[in-house]
Amino acid sequence: MAGSKVPVCNEADFELLIEGYQTRIAKYVYNQVKHVEDTQDLTQEVFLRAFKAQEQLRSSQALVSWLFSIAVNVVRDYYRQKQKTIPIASVQWADTAQWVDPPSELLEEDDLVGRALARLPQDTAACLLLHEVEGFTAREIAAILNIRPDAARQRIVRARRAFKQTYQGLSHEGQP
């Protein structure tokens, strides 16, 4: 029921939570970081934070978007951490969490989607995947990313345009 708290998990409940959603969360995390071992670490971190913050969950219907909101933050922290270790010579002024280069060195040449996504800011790519692949609505994405619904809609619009342009450009580059 909306508005009522979900009972606090005991360890067995938590086990079920992990069983039920770990693959989906791991897929999301993997497609954001493209690194198997990091995905395992970060997926664990998602469920650990979920366990610690379970009181925040108000409704069982919101469980999936709540888990994704934690996953988004875990990935954001990952990139924020990564950003902190960029070479001194290239330190940027506007070093907010969104201006982070994704690990493009891990991408294969023929991975056009991966290369197109890698050119998007991390939060924009996250928005695109949550909407177009995971099937969340703009309003749900707003809750996941902790932003206003209009900001979520705007990100989806921008993400679509940027991805389409880049993806089509890369596709044409590869044609003889």
């Binding site: 933050n73 969104q98 990313l145 902790n146 990100r155 921008r158 345009r161 940027a162």
Partner: peptide, 16 residues
């Protein structure tokens, strides 16, 4: 327009 910045409220106060 390829740069997507939002005033980082969510970064100031992470959801967790």
């Amino acid at each position: 327009d390829d740069i997507d910045l939002q005033f980082p409220l969510s970064w100031l106060f992470p959801a967790d």
